[in-house]
Amino acid sequence: MKLILTADVPNLGAPGDIVEVKDGYGRNYLLPRKMAVAATRGAEKQVASIQRAQKARAIKDLGHAKEVAGQLKELTVTVKAKAAGDSGRLFGSVTAADVVKAVQAAGGPALDRRAVDVPSQIKSVGTHQVTVRIHPEVTTELDIEVAPTS
């Protein structure tokens, strides 16, 4: 199935890219979530204008993305875990949404939870590292401290 992306899709492409995907992925995931539109002749003509606008924004965003990455490097982020056992093992796990809330509480910039990659489930108290994709060309590592609530 040939589609034109309208949103950034990890490991697939950016808005305005024309991609070939399997029918089920396009019909059941990309199209219902408005992340893509069917590639018709009329829609393909609009791709050039979408990509021009994207490039104009990307030049401005790259400098801003590096600035945000610098802000994140300076932050000390503490995530309060809901509950933990005596051995420091959590009864749940820390999610990307929890990390985003903790960054904002620490005075950091507003992030999209989909831009935060938690490497594996964080299920213990201590220091962990997550990856934040701020821009297609800018990613940064963020150290978070997971602490139990008293």
Rank of each mutant, 00 (worst) to 15 (best):
S93I: 06
R114P: 11
T131L: 13
G85E: 08
V125T: 05
P148I: 03
R27D: 04
Y29W: 02
T95R: 12
Q104V: 13
G92Y: 05
H128M: 07
S124R: 13
P148Q: 07
P15K: 03
R133A: 15
Q129P: 01
R113G: 06
A147S: 14
A38D: 06
M1A: 10
A147T: 14
G26Y: 00
A53L: 07
L5E: 12
A7F: 01
L72I: 05
L62M: 06
P148H: 01
D23C: 03
E67N: 11
K66V: 03
G63T: 14
R113D: 07
I18P: 02
K66R: 14
G92E: 10
A96E: 09
S150Y: 08
Y25K: 00
A43Q: 10
D17H: 12
G88I: 05
Q121A: 13
A84P: 02
R133W: 15
A110Y: 01
K22H: 04
S150C: 02
V116H: 02
D23H: 03
Y29C: 02
A43C: 05
L75N: 02
P32H: 00
G26D: 00
Q129L: 12
S87W: 09
H135D: 13
I134P: 04
T139A: 14
R41H: 12
A38I: 13
V94H: 13
H64G: 04
G126R: 10
S93R: 02
V116L: 06
E137N: 10
K55A: 11
R113W: 10
A115C: 09
M35N: 07
A58I: 04
A7Q: 14
D17R: 07
S124M: 09
G107S: 08
K101E: 12
K66W: 02
K73E: 13
I50Q: 01
A39C: 08
H64D: 14
E137M: 10
D117L: 14
L31M: 00
V125G: 01
N11G: 06
G63F: 09
S87D: 15
Q51M: 12
Q104N: 10
L72E: 09
Y25I: 00
V103D: 08
A96K: 07
L75I: 03
V138K: 06
M35C: 05
K34Y: 10
T149S: 15
K82T: 01
I144E: 03
A69R: 02
A39W: 03
R57S: 09
V37A: 02
L90G: 05
Q129R: 11
A56S: 09
E74K: 14
Y25N: 00
D61S: 11
D98K: 08
G63M: 06
H135P: 11
V94C: 09
D61Q: 12
E145K: 12
R114Q: 15
A14H: 15
V19N: 00
T95S: 13
D117E: 13
R114I: 12
H135Y: 11
V99N: 01
G26P: 00
T127I: 14
T40F: 06
T95Q: 07
